[in-house]
């Protein structure tokens, strides 16, 4: 067995919740002089420890504000943890928000290369995958149109097509499998499933235990920034369902 794909070690993430955002000099100095520049500490994630082995598919469950998205951002390297460490072995494809790297004035075709480069792939590599991406996104007729004229569904389809075409070793899915119409949703689920067979590690965030059971073999539950349960997907999903009922 090779090295684990993701190791999260006693990781905490703290934010300063200032009541007003101070982003100009005048306010900053006034606040500094009047000593009103105080912050409230908020621990979005508190002492999280878990390990994801290569090829494991982990569902991340939790209520709104439990810290799911923050956790994914830390793993993707967007946020740096306040304490502890996160180690990732392998190429990561963060699908936190499909099409986040798009430039609105750029055409679909140009954006494919830009988005690919954002994930660290060369122009040549993307050229090889280009046809596959266009075909999968079903946007052949619109590929030279600026992305600003795309519908949100079209944008998401293109983003999904690029992110999955590059065959990453670790795939982060933040409620993105609800993209487009039912037909495309089915297609994208199939695509993700085909990636499992190649041994892709998956982190999947969802509110739906049904989706988690469909895709994942393991799961964790976050609540108010703490990891409260981890283990086999079936047990954890049952626990989560009980929690939901308990809240009601």
């Amino acid at each position: 067995m090779s090295k684990p794909a993701i190791v999260v070690d006693h990781m905490s993430m703290m934010f300063n919740l200032n009541k007003e955002k101070v982003d100009n000099l005048k306010e900053y100095f006034i606040k500094l002089l009047t000593r009103r520049l105080h912050f409230t500490e908020f621990w979005a994630l508190n002492d999280i420890t878990f390990t994801v082995e290569k090829g494991e598919r982990v569902g991340v469950l939790g209520f709104n504000g439990a810290g799911k998205s923050t956790l994914l951002k830390v793993i993707a390297g967007v946020l740096k943890p306040t304490k502890g460490s996160v180690k990732v072995n392998g190429v990561i494809a963060p699908m936190l928000e499909l099409g986040a790297g798009f430039d609105m004035n750029y055409s679909g075709k140009e954006n494919i290369f830009l988005y690919g480069a954002t994930m660290g792939y060369s122009r040549k590599f993307i050229e090889e995958k280009y046809n596959e991406i266009v075909e999968f996104s079903e946007l052949k007729d619109f590929i030279d149109v600026p992305v600003k004229n795309y519908s949100s569904g079209m944008r998401a389809r293109l983003g999904f097509a690029i992110a999955t075409a590059v065959e990453p070793e670790i795939l982060i899915l933040d409620e993105v499998l609800s993209v487009g119409d039912a037909k495309f949703r089915k297609k994208s689920e199939e695509k993700v499933r085909s990636m499992f067979d190649k041994g892709t590690t998956v982190l999947f965030v969802s509110h739906s235990t049904q989706q988690v059971l469909n895709i994942c073999n393991k799961a964790i539950i976050l609540d108010h920034g703490k990891l409260i349960a981890q283990g086999d997907a079936k047990e954890i999903c049952k626990l989560y369902d009980d929690m939901v009922k308990g809240v009601k």
């Binding site: 993707a76 390297g77 967007v78 990561i92 963060p94 936190l96 928000e97 986040a100 790297g101 954002t118 994930m119």
Partner: peptide, 9 residues
């Protein structure tokens, strides 16, 4: 900002 907030670069 839209890229920096979502993807590591």
């Amino acid at each position: 900002a839209s890229v920096i907030k979502k993807v590591y670069v």
